Amino acid sequence: MRRSTILTYCAFVLFALGYLTLMRTSDPVAPFNTVAQAHPQVGIAYRIISISMNIVALATLLGGGLVFYSIVKYARASEHNLIKLFLPTKRHMGMLVVGTLLIALCLTLYIVFFGFIVGSPPHIADQPLWLALLIAMAGVFVGSALFTFVILLVSTMIALAVSRSDTGPRVFHIVRIFMAATLLSMGISFGATIYWIAALWSSVPQFTMSDAGLSMGNLTWVILALGAMVLALCLAINALRQSLKVREPLVSQ
């Protein structure tokens, strides 16, 4: 159950990052609101995405708050230092650094070279292409590395606190309900996202292909967002499946 809880949290982080990345492609929202007024199915799909994400965040917040309360209660009962439960060791920090560098490198290569594939490579006025490419790769690598390290560090601290504490089976039995609600809401949000993108392409292809819509420049982020959402759903499904396997031991206890 601890592992399932950690996996669900990781799934939420990935899905939220994918959602925020997708919202980046629809900024500014004024052109999309105009399309939604002319084509109600586009606006309805977008509202379903937003409402589902709010439910995902609420379910995660309630389940996470319950687990955090259990961790604090365990620390007080066992006289453990609460802060030490969250602190990573040197081994964990080493793994964080290596993971951060690998993820940042993969993101840099994907974002920069995908620009060449869609025909929008990085460029700087009056500067050669190799210099623009070098600056773009350096900027993307540094930015993605810092962002990734913060996300991984916070996630690792939460995972360590959950794994080190002795949370009772009753708490996990309740958390399982929030895990199911999170997975269901993520599935609805992802389905609405696919429909929203398909509705934009079929209803207003000229707008979708323009710079104001989901143009080739934004296609990089759309694919990245959908990939993160799919991976998050796989993690959430695996987490719920693992939690259901320990149903009988929880009842027997």
Rank of each mutant, 00 (worst) to 15 (best):
V162R: 06
T156I: 08
V171Q: 02
I135H: 04
A180G: 11
L129V: 14
T156D: 04
I151N: 02
R176D: 13
G143K: 04
S185P: 07
P128V: 03
T182E: 15
S155A: 15
I174N: 04
M137E: 12
S144L: 06
G139Y: 09
G139W: 06
P169I: 00
M179F: 08
M137N: 03
A136V: 04
L183M: 14
R170P: 00
R170T: 11
P128G: 07
F149S: 07
V162A: 01
V142I: 15
A145K: 02
P128H: 05
P128T: 05
P128F: 04
A138S: 12
A159V: 10
V150R: 02
L146Y: 08
M137S: 15
M137L: 10
T156R: 13
S165C: 01
M137D: 05
A132L: 05
I177P: 02
V171C: 06
T156S: 12
L134T: 13
P169L: 01
S144G: 03
A159R: 11
L146N: 05
G143M: 11
I151H: 00
L131A: 08
T148A: 14
M157F: 07
M137V: 06
L131K: 11
P169A: 00
A159N: 08
I158M: 12
V140I: 15
S144R: 03
V171H: 00
R164V: 04
M157L: 06
A145H: 02
S163T: 12
A132Q: 02
V175Q: 07
I158S: 03
W130R: 10
A136G: 02
G139T: 12
S165N: 00
S185L: 10
W130F: 13
A138W: 06
A181Q: 14
